[in-house]
Design a protein around this nucleic acid. Structure first.
Length: 427
RNA sequence: GUGGGUGUAGCUCAGUGGUAGAGCACUGGAUUGUGGCUCCAGGUGUCGCGGGUUCAAUUCCCGUCACUCACCCCA
């Protein structure tokens, strides 16, 4: 092969794009009902934005960013996630001074230089939502419920909602030292990886998959029990709201995320069946009440999530797409081809999708192809039809044919496409 | 970044130290202009890439790249 695609970056061909369209439009449809508006931010941002928001010592920033240098010392990075850029856009455009409450969504490619595997690629696609300016737990619950609704709507029913709270900065600091104190005497029981994290980021030990770490952590203090004051109120408010909605959830005190900006509510939606293996996190998010301020803006509470579209496509049952009906035009001979060209234009002008087979093949091959494409109708135009100013209209599913005068064509075809059922799959 | 598996036709895969096959798909014909079945015919491959051993390598050896699964991490 002369040129291979860049590792972990894939082409999406027309055959597959239909599933993407349906997923994306379902997302837009659902979030629009909650009054989210789309924001499109650049794929490139200053590296510093991601370092500051995601966190200097996170894996994403330390080793997974596509970063390159520009002249005069500028460093740019291809966005590894959407929250940082959205927050930057929120500040850049001084949105907080125009409206007190903002709901945004985004949809598009993200880039991380990881080792690709099933459901994880270097260029991948995320859809996400951000709410700025709402501190209360109601919006947390609303967002989780919206996500469940969305997954049901795209045919993913086996999802579990996992939630946790890591409190605000003060609570996190308290818990951090309690956890370190608890783990330090047991350092020998931990995996090497967890041991190295003990001092740098002890919370991450909680969601280690290593059996030794899991065992050591079972008796660890729970952050939920240490929540106080407003942190506790918020957490309890969230549970109350979820209960009121009847949204099922799992409290997972070990749930911790890999990005530094989170505070209080943390959540994850996981696929519980299907073939995703270890990459079963379909959606992750939480609050990041301190982020906007830390980027130099006003103190603005915020909450958001991102979901991986590739994974959702893997998790969603492969429902065959309902193709928009169309017809194939099969001309026989030079003069019929010229007539067909004009006929096709007139049909298209009437809003009908037409596949003009102008290769000059045999009628049989054109009909075979029309079948293979699952066209509803095939219009045959030969010399005798041209002479009489008609076309032969074949209903490919019903094996019937009728002659239609050229003048009646667009209207007649429109009617037939609306009423003729699609040929059954595999027939 | 670490470890395992796999690279042969468009796809799924067989196979051999003497430069290669099947099924599906595709094209044509049987049916001078009427389809999904059937039958017949046809074409396609730098056998991932580079090097080594050999009279001879797609086959054996080494390296490398890609894909893939898992770890890690995350969506």
């Amino acid at each position: 092969m002369q040129y291979a695609p860049v590792k972990g970056m894939n082409d999406i061909l027309p055959d597959e794009i239909d599933r993407w369209y349906r997923l994306e439009s379902a997302f837009r449809r659902v979030v629009s009902r909650y009054r989210y508006g789309e924001v499109r931010t650049p794929l490139l941002e200053h590296t510093e934005l991601f370092v500051r928001s995601i966190g200097e010592t996170t894996d994403v920033v330390e080793k997974e960013m596509f970063t390159f240098a520009r002249p005069k010392g500028e460093s740019l990075t291809m966005r590894p996630e959407g929250t940082a850029g959205a927050a930057r856009a929120y500040l850049t455009n001084k949105v907080q001074s125009r409206e007190p409450l903002t709901r945004w969504y985004y949809l598009g490619p993200m880039f991380r230089a990881e080792q690709p595997q099933r459901g994880r690629y270097r260029q991948f696609h995320q859809a996400g939502c951000e709410v700025y300016g709402d501190l209360g737990p109601l919006v947390d619950a609303e967002m989780l419920d919206m996500l469940v609704t969305f997954f049901h709507e795209v045919g993913v029913f086996d999802v579990e909602v996992c939630i946790n709270s890591i409190g605000g900065e003060a609570a996190r600091a308290r818990y951090r030292s309690a956890l370190t104190e608890f783990l330090r005497p047991r350092a020998q029981e931990l995996s090497e990886h967890a041991r190295s994290r003990l001092e740098t980021n002890p919370l991450r030990v909680l969601d280690s998959k290593d059996a030794r770490d899991r065992a050591a952590v079972t008796e660890a203090p729970s952050i939920l029990e240490m929540l106080e004051g407003e942190d506790r109120q918020h957490w309890e408010g969230l549970l109350t709201a979820l209960d009121a909605l009847g949204t099922p959830y799992l409290v997972r005190p070990g749930l911790v995320r890999g990005l530094d900006y989170y505070s209080r509510t943390l959540f994850e939606l996981n696929a519980t069946s299907g073939e995703l293996g270890a990459q079963n996190t379909l959606c992750g998010g939480g609050r990041y009440d301190g982020m906007v301020k830390s980027l130099g803006g006003p103190d603005t509470p915020a909450i958001g999530f991102a979901m991986g579209l590739e994974r959702i496509l893997l998790a969603a049952a492969a429902v065959p797409a309902a193709k928009t009906p169309f017809c194939v035009l099969a001309p026989l001979g030079r003069s019929a081809q010229l007539t067909a060209l004009a006929v096709a234009r007139d049909l298209r002008a009437a809003g009908i999708a037409v596949d003009l087979d102008g290769r000059g093949n045999s009628l049989k091959s054109m009909l075979r192809r029309a079948d293979a494409l699952r066209a509803r109708l095939c219009l045959v135009i030969g010399d005798s039809e041209v002479a009489r100013a008609v076309v032969q209209v074949k209903d490919l599913a019903g094996h019937s044919a009728a002659e239609v005068a050229l003048g009646d064509l667009p209207g007649r075809i429109g009617e037939l496409l609306a009423t003729t059922p699609s040929p059954p799959e595999g027939a």
